[in-house]
Design a binder for these strands. Sequence first.
DNA 1: GCCATATATGCAATATTTTGCAATATTAAA
DNA 2: TTTAATATTGCAAAATATTGCATATATGGC
Lengths: 249, 249
Amino acid sequence: MLKEERFQIILDQLGHEQKVYLGHLSTLLNVSEDTVRRDIKELADQGLLKSVRGGAVPHAPGPHHFRDRMTYDNEQKQIIAKKALQFLKDGQVVIFDGGTSALLIAQMLPKDLKLTVITNSFPIASILEEHEHVDVLFAGGRLLKDSFVTIGNDAIQFFKKFRADICLLGICSIHTNLGVTGPDFEEGEVKRTMIECSKEVIALATTEKLGTAEAYYVCPTERLSTIITDKQADIEEFDIYRGLGISMV
Amino acid sequence: MLKEERFQIILDQLGHEQKVYLGHLSTLLNVSEDTVRRDIKELADQGLLKSVRGGAVPHAPGPHHFRDRMTYDNEQKQIIAKKALQFLKDGQVVIFDGGTSALLIAQMLPKDLKLTVITNSFPIASILEEHEHVDVLFAGGRLLKDSFVTIGNDAIQFFKKFRADICLLGICSIHTNLGVTGPDFEEGEVKRTMIECSKEVIALATTEKLGTAEAYYVCPTERLSTIITDKQADIEEFDIYRGLGISMV
DNA sequence: GCCATATATGCAATATTTTGCAATATTAAA
DNA sequence: TTTAATATTGCAAAATATTGCATATATGGC
């Protein structure tokens, strides 16, 4: 019997049952448990199932939650978040984008700051709920399952009702000619509206995002008032943005 | 039996009940209480449930501590939630009120049910994010700090865009003459709109709320299609509601 | 065909993990 | 406080994994 046949049988079993046992497969396939174990390991490496002690279970492509992604890569973003805090002053109306960068800012926000925050991000709203002096206006709309933000026309119309002092724009790609771009159409639409409704736009960008572009256009680079990066701001490389009237921080 | 099977069974239990006991699981799974305890600890580390003395309770995988505020030991509400589930069918558009009763229903919702849910409750939206086949439409508006719902004109206008099959109305006071009433003006306004936009209104009410009234008027009693209580439904006392064409469950 | 090489398989010795038990500590309730 | 229930810890037995190795089987070049 070919190894591939065994693979197929193992996967078939997992299609019906929620588990397979080494012993069972060993007799079913007429090979030693060692071999079954090796097969399972190989399939697990391909991500087709999950190897567990004594057998295997289907690989659940579990909904990766916001919390999980939070911990990832936060060195740079923390630096950015700290820098961003100094831009926020009592009494301002601030639009928070839905990304992790803006979320970090919300987490680090001093408890005594008085703000009106407009956002479409559940995690951000949930954190700010604890800030006594922060009024939260939440944009309704269709809930985007894996990023915990609302999108769609309803969300857009909601933002259009306001005129914010500052928009904290989560990390997008920024290119001097191609402008600000993002990877998702619908989220891009929302971001564009956020920008339209704000006097000042502060973009949060790790340095590797500078000079790159993605599929969906958000706004021209000149529309940004400030770009906050994780690097020292006096790099020569940044002069091209300063030439556009953008302050680099 | 694989460890993963036990995990699955424990989590399944928590999908139906709001708590599991060590002793119960120990006999159910044919392992010692120590092992169950270790399993629960492991699942708790993964954030899939919350370990408590003597057993475990569900833990929302949502971004934040919504679930912590839940009262787990509310027998009455659990009975109501179970009864309510049978009213929900594939394909329906359902408005979920922001109270804990509706939240319990959301928690116990079968994962394969296909629904469109409209709500103004963060905890509910956060739980339903897990349900692949549930579309969530979230009502924007001002965030009411301690009950995690949005209120205000924006929320009201949002609901008005829809025509739902069912409205699950959290616990209010119900009085045959004085109608349905609640303790908060703004939340009452929202509830009234939810009702206006729904064909069928199912009120969730513990029996002590029947025959009482509070400060703010929501709707006439006759507007309710069904009242779900925690008691047997054939009580004579309920006849007065049946007389109004309301089915008691 | 035939050899050299790579790969797959089973076996045995050795690690590692899981599990239940008992002793001890901690917690909740009377 | 005392008492009963539940948790924690250390430990040993059982189950399962890993590793190294010998054998078998396939693969490709000649």
